[in-house]
């Protein structure tokens, strides 16, 4: 079922796709067909995702997508350019390997949110489970709630902002990514250390919070974590 709804304020049409009646394959194909600036709807609303996996993955177009409900694994996986907003919770691997664009979740995200992301922005308004930002490579991630264990594992570049608490082994084996946490950190992972929060970091944080639409927190309340760089070149005295 597809319906064209005309918004009162703007004349931009919103393409509505109901996953209760439209196969996921058809939806994703239509979204992919917009790659390279091809003609087609720029605003989409997806109904009844009902926990489906791989919803709106592999998009390469400057479009906006609102998903009304919960999604399963790998929603918005490998996203490029698109803005995807999930009005619900998301399963594992949300926005995995995102390269650009923005992915937002109103609720919680399961494991490995933003895994290996290379660019763009991921915002989780609830909590994110274990391995949030694992192996991240340039993405920015802002979590309004808390993150689970091994978040920021082997994180290479990019920034992970946690407004709540962080679980065990935060930033284990981290490279050059920067992690900011406002609440308690259960335990730092191997080679991850607390670093001084300087003005440039407060400014960077303020900007990330702003982008995430969070305006009630003070960047000065965060702590900064990063790599001690002791594991950068293998040496027996650093072996675990």
């Amino acid at each position: 079922m597809r319906a064209e709804v005309t918004e009162a304020a703007e004349t931009t049409a919103v393409e509505v796709v109901d996953l209760a009646s439209t196969p996921l394959r058809e939806l994703n194909q239509r979204l992919h067909d917009l790659a390279g600036g091809a003609d087609g709807p720029r605003r989409w609303r997806i109904l009844n995702p009902n926990g489906a996996h791989a919803v709106a993955c592999g998009i390469d177009a400057e479009i906006e997508i609102e998903i009304q409900g919960h999604v399963g694994y790998y929603c918005a996986g490998m996203n490029k350019l698109a803005t995807v907003r999930v009005h619900g919770n998301a399963g594992p691997g949300l926005a995995e390997n995102i390269t650009s664009g923005t992915v937002m979740v109103d609720g919680n995200a399961s494991q490995s949110a933003g895994a290996t992301g290379r660019g763009g922005l991921l915002v989780v308004h609830g909590d994110a489970a274990a391995r949030c930002g694992i192996s991240m490579k340039g993405v920015d991630i802002v979590v309004r709630g808390s993150v689970g264990h091994l978040s920021g594992f082997i994180a290479q570049t990019g920034r992970l902002v946690v407004c709540g608490d962080a679980g065990e082994a935060l930033g284990d084996s981290i490279y050059e990514a920067r992690i900011y946490v406002r609440g308690a950190v259960s335990e730092l992972g191997a080679d991850c250390v607390e670093k001084e929060l300087r003005d440039e970091h407060r400014a960077e944080l303020a900007d990330l919070l702003l982008q995430a639409g969070i305006d009630d927190l003070d960047p000065s309340d965060f702590r900064r974590y990063g790599s001690a760089r002791r594991l950068y070149n293998f040496h027996v005295d650093n072996a675990y």
């Binding site: 996921l24 394959r25 994703n28 996996h53 791989a54 993955c57 592999g58 399963g72 694994y73 790998y74 996986g77 490998m78 594992p92 691997g93 995995e96 494991q111 490995s112 895994a115 290996t116 391995r131 694992i134 192996s135 594992f153 082997i154 084996s173 594991l231 950068y232 070149n233 293998f234």
Partner: peptide
């Protein structure tokens, strides 16, 4: 020195693998 992980960052076990393959096919 660059370490490469021994485990995939976004799936573990055969049931996840099935979903991961599904995602790659969709993409």
């Amino acid at each position: 020195d660059q370490r490469s992980a021994s485990r995939h960052p976004d799936w573990t076990g055969p049931d996840d693998l099935e979903i991961k393959i599904g995602e790659l096919r969709e993409i």
